[in-house]
């Protein structure tokens, strides 16, 4: 007996993502899914973002890692709410894992929730978490080939944070070429050049976040 299903493999994930999305919308929480390869600077950027914006907004963070609570501890040290998800070998966060942590947050009292995904430029791009925005961090030591090599990430994100630009003088990374490559894969994607170390460009990132906040506020 043959049974035709034509079911999306990610059906269960997508259902959980819709559940999350509805909750975020009902509680008016701006949710940003932050992705990158390991070590591009996601946590450092989040530390700087908490430092820069927490006097104006209530910020919370979900930290996704294979193991350890280190990243969540770094955020908590700054006084922000952070919950760690350990994927125990899993290479990405999925919507069900995120849904399971949400009871730990008071979303009515949260303006922005950042989700730091597991460091990986492939798998996280395929999983909807219910976020409003998908942002990818690319750091200049990773080299120019990352945008063309990982098109499925860059075609599904709307903003590239080009991090560690303080290192540009020492590396052969070509910013113009990266902008051209991004155009070729996803012309709608924006790019912000910054350094979480020297804080150069952080104000542009904060302006982007505030624009996103304004867009999701009810009238």
């Amino acid at each position: 007996m043959k049974v035709t299903l034509r079911t999306d493999v990610l059906t269960n994930n997508n259902k959980a993502a819709e559940y999350n999305r509805e909750l975020f919308e009902n509680t008016n929480t701006l949710v940003i899914n932050l992705m990158s390869s390991p070590g591009a600077g996601k946590t450092t950027l989040l530390e700087e973002t908490v430092r820069g914006l927490s006097d104006k907004y209530r910020i919370a963070v979900i930290e996704g890692d294979l193991a350890t609570d280190r990243d969540a501890d770094r955020i908590r040290a700054l006084g922000a709410k952070a919950v760690q998800i350990n994927t125990h070998g899993g290479c990405h966060l999925d919507a069900r894992m995120v849904a399971a942590t949400l009871p730990e947050f008071d979303l009515d009292e949260t303006d922005i929730l950042f989700i730091e995904n597991v460091g990986n430029l492939v798998c996280p791009s395929g999983y909807d978490l219910g976020q409003k925005h998908k942002v990818v961090v690319l750091s200049v030591p990773e080299g120019n080939d990352k945008i063309p090599k990982y098109p499925t990430m860059f075609m599904r994100t709307e903003l590239v944070l080009l991090n560690k630009i303080d290192l540009l003088p020492y590396l052969d990374f070509n910013v113009e070429e990266a902008i051209g490559d991004l155009q070729g894969i996803n012309p709608e994607s924006k790019m912000i050049q910054l350094s979480a170390r020297t804080k150069e460009g952080l104000d542009t990132w904060f302006t982007w976040i505030e624009g996103a906040l304004a867009a999701c506020k009810p009238q």
Binding site: K2, T4, L5, T7, D8, V9, L10
Partner: peptide, 17 residues
């Protein structure tokens, strides 16, 4: 840069027997 992906993103269970 005016192209949009129209196919190749599918990941489906088509059928089983």
């Amino acid at each position: 840069p005016s192209g949009k992906i129209i196919s190749g993103e599918t990941f489906q269970i088509l059928s089983y027997e």
